[in-house]
Design a protein around this nucleic acid. Sequence first.
DNA 1: ACAAAAGTGTTGTTTCTACACCCATGC
DNA 2: GCATGGGTGTAGAAACAACACTTTTGT
Lengths: 241, 241
Amino acid sequence: MLKYSNQTRVLVSVDCVVFGFDGEDYRLLLVQKGGAVEKEKWSLMGGFLQPDESLEQAASRVVFELTGIKDVYLEQLCGFSNPNRDPIERVLSITHVALIDIKKYEDQINEEYMAKWFPMKNLPALVLDHREMVNMALKKLRYNAALHPVLFELLPEKFTLPQLQILYEGLYNINIDKRNFSRKVLSTGIIKRLNEKDKSKSKKGAFYYKLVKRNYKEKFNRVLNFIPKNEIPKNIPIISN
Amino acid sequence: MLKYSNQTRVLVSVDCVVFGFDGEDYRLLLVQKGGAVEKEKWSLMGGFLQPDESLEQAASRVVFELTGIKDVYLEQLCGFSNPNRDPIERVLSITHVALIDIKKYEDQINEEYMAKWFPMKNLPALVLDHREMVNMALKKLRYNAALHPVLFELLPEKFTLPQLQILYEGLYNINIDKRNFSRKVLSTGIIKRLNEKDKSKSKKGAFYYKLVKRNYKEKFNRVLNFIPKNEIPKNIPIISN
DNA sequence: ACAAAAGTGTTGTTTCTACACCCATGC
DNA sequence: GCATGGGTGTAGAAACAACACTTTTGT
């Protein structure tokens, strides 16, 4: 097979910033590599792009191999391309963001794999430039979540409005008026109340809701507005890249 | 120097979807490569990632080498990673979007380089998967421009409100009420009227405006709303990736 | 004097935010 | 019976969309 001549080929890795939500706080899924560099530090889930796979496939594979989870919400974040970002040799990292329902997979992650959930507020030291990736992923998540209903990807099938609100409040570190919040969310028609309550957090119990898949997909690309505009912190750039 | 073993390294190219605006229509800057594949087709500006440069540097370099233009608005679009996208050998393309003030550089492009502006409405056949890249770039531009004042990057330093409006109308194929449009744009404070008129398009003449850089930068990341919500075509997904 | 494009103001509608009380239940 | 969190409605403000006429000037 013919090749392009006189060009340098580089290693390409796919790193995944995997977010979860434990009902109160955001968490990040990290692994401790047996790799040669910085053994004591934690790392994003990552792997090298294989000859026969696309980036999307590689990202899915990486998440699957390390957690056993399939059908995860994944999006490409951006390339990290500093020529010296890896001391061993040049590695171009195409970083992805994944959102996972933490509850559903908590056990199997801890037992079968080396992965561990860390609270976002208290992350360990990370390998290479992974901290930078996390920061950028968080920025992008804040941006996307302010405009589109992505955060539902972090919730279990059945969830309550208070849970959902905590999810939004936590991401921006703000307080939202629950009356306005529920009115906005419900008016989109993307969730539907069930005849069942979660009594674990209050005596009265909060109704469970579930996504209306059809409406969710349809509305996903529209620009919504669950976050009061004034509440989006002024110093956080909200553009994605 | 130590290397990661048993891993395949791939060629990485940086392709740039370069948009321009001729005052009436959007244009795309293309080149005709002397490369081995599909000689008769046109191609996005591209080049291979060099050992000592980042993606951003590579993208700037590519645009500069082919047009002589520096300080261009550039953003990363996404990776195109189909293993078979290039018949010669696997090439991972990290595609970028660039916005250029077409008037300023029109001449020097045509004379010194092989690049040529094509009207978006009438593009020639493109090499490999470049058409797909253009489509995605357009989608992303529509998305970004609906929320942030990116389109100013396509205008010369001095421009008129009618020009600006045509720019927006053209991108979404819509008509915008000029009274509402100018009120919205002016209320942001990102442009300032000059005491000078463009008389080339009407007898009365239209006032020139220029960017107020400070306000432009400050407002760039806020979510603005120059496009009437109902006018954003329902069938165009407006999420970026 | 008229054609062609630029410029400007008002009104009704919708959407947003602010705000406070009652409800259901487990203890 | 009371403490805890869940649920709901209204009124004022702000943003938005719809709409038509006057201005300028080159010919």
